[in-house]
Lab assay of single mutants.
Amino acid sequence: KEMRNAYWEIALLPNLNNQQKRAFIRSLYDDPSQSANLLAEAKKLNDAQA
């Protein structure tokens, strides 16, 4: 469930391009235990690109 939530949050971040989203989501599938960390990194990048 945590992975699914992280997937959708990443997919809906407005300032990431599709390539960036795909990279984060690929990492999510590679290591679901890192969901919270990956989401935090994606949000950080999203904010930096705002």
Rank of each mutant, 00 (worst) to 15 (best):
A50C: 06
A48W: 13
L13K: 02
K1R: 05
E2D: 13
E2W: 02
F24T: 01
P14L: 07
N46K: 01
E9K: 15
K21N: 00
L12C: 10
A48V: 10
A40E: 07
A23L: 14
L38F: 05
K44I: 08
A50F: 10
K43R: 12
E9Q: 15
F24I: 03
N18P: 11
S33M: 11
Q49R: 07
L13Y: 04
P14D: 04
I25M: 15
N37M: 13
R22P: 01
I25Q: 10
P14E: 07
N15M: 05
Y7G: 09
R4I: 13
D47G: 08
A48I: 13
A42S: 03
A6F: 14
A48S: 13
N46A: 04
A23Y: 15
Q49H: 05
P32F: 09
A6M: 13
Q19R: 07
Q19S: 11
I10N: 00
A40S: 09
L13V: 01
M3E: 09
N17K: 04
M3K: 06
L16V: 02
N17R: 07
K43Q: 07
F24R: 01
D47Q: 12
N18V: 10
A11I: 14
A36D: 08
W8C: 10
N46I: 01
N46T: 01
W8N: 10
D31I: 07
A40R: 13
N18F: 13
N18G: 10
K44W: 11
L28E: 00
N17L: 06
I25E: 02
P14K: 11
R22K: 06
Q49V: 08
L16H: 00
L13E: 00
L16S: 00
I10R: 00
A48Y: 11
A36W: 14
D31R: 12
A23R: 12
L13C: 02
L12G: 09
N18S: 14
L38I: 13
K43I: 07
A36C: 07
R26T: 04
N5Y: 14
R26G: 03
S33T: 08
I25A: 04
K43D: 02
S27Y: 08
S33F: 05
K1Y: 04
D31H: 15
L13P: 00
R22Q: 10
E41F: 13
L38Y: 07
Q20V: 04
I10D: 00
Q34P: 01
I25C: 05
W8A: 09
E41P: 00
R4W: 13
P32E: 04
S35F: 12
N17Y: 07
N5S: 15
L45C: 03
I25W: 15
Q49E: 05
A50S: 11
N17Q: 04
Q34M: 12
Q20L: 03
W8F: 12
Y7Q: 10
D31W: 11
Y29Q: 11
N5K: 15
A36Y: 14
Q19I: 09
Y7E: 15
S35D: 03
L12Q: 13
Q19C: 07
Q20A: 03
N5V: 13
L38D: 01
A36I: 09
S35G: 08
L12S: 12
N15A: 07
D30P: 02
Q20Y: 02
M3N: 07
A48D: 10
W8Q: 10
R22I: 10
F24E: 00
L16P: 00
N18W: 15
A6R: 06
N17G: 06
S33L: 06
E2H: 08
K21E: 01
F24S: 01
A50G: 13
L12M: 09
D47M: 11
P32V: 04
Y7N: 02
N5F: 14
A48K: 11
Q49M: 09
S27W: 14
L39C: 04
A36H: 11
L12Y: 11
R26I: 08
L45T: 05
R4G: 09
S35T: 05
E41T: 09
D30R: 15
S27F: 08
R26Q: 06
K21I: 05
E41R: 15
A23T: 13
D47K: 11
A42Y: 02
I10P: 00
Q20P: 00
R26V: 05
K44D: 06
I25H: 08
N17D: 05
L38S: 03
E2S: 10
N18I: 11
Q20I: 04
A6V: 05
I25K: 03
N37F: 13
L13D: 01
E2N: 10
E9D: 04
Y29A: 08
N15L: 04
R26A: 06
R26H: 05
F24H: 01
R4A: 09
E9G: 11
L28C: 03
F24M: 03
N15D: 04
L28Q: 01
L39F: 04
L13W: 03
Y29H: 07
A36T: 08
S35C: 06
K43E: 03
Q20H: 02
L38W: 08
L28P: 00
M3Q: 11
Y29G: 04
K1W: 03
A50W: 09
R4C: 13
L39Y: 04
F24W: 02
L39H: 02
S33A: 10
I25F: 15
A42I: 02
D31N: 14
L39M: 08
L13M: 12
Y29S: 06
I25D: 01
K43M: 08
P32Y: 07
P32G: 03
S33K: 11
S27T: 07
A50Y: 11
D47V: 11
Q20K: 02
K43W: 12
N37T: 07
S27R: 14
I10E: 00
K44G: 05
A11L: 15
A42F: 02
E9I: 15
P32K: 04
K1Q: 09
D31F: 15
L13A: 04
Y7I: 14
Q20M: 04
I25Y: 15
Q19G: 08
P32L: 04
S33P: 04
N17V: 03
A42D: 00
D30F: 13
Q49P: 03
L28N: 01
A48R: 09
A6S: 06
K44A: 07
R4V: 12
E9R: 15
Q34V: 05
A11P: 02
L12V: 07
L39D: 00
L45G: 01
N46S: 05
P14A: 10
D31G: 04
K43P: 00
D30K: 11
E41W: 15
K21L: 03
A6G: 04
M3L: 12
S35N: 04
P32R: 04
A48M: 11
A23Q: 09
L13G: 00
Y7S: 10
L28A: 02
K43H: 12
K43L: 08
A23E: 04
E41V: 11
R4N: 08
E41N: 13
K43C: 03
A23M: 15
D31A: 09
Q49L: 10
K21H: 01
A42W: 01
K44R: 11
N15H: 10
K43V: 08
L13H: 04
N5P: 05
R22A: 08
P32H: 04
L28R: 00
F24P: 00
S33G: 11
S35K: 14
N46G: 02
N5L: 15
I25V: 05
L16W: 00
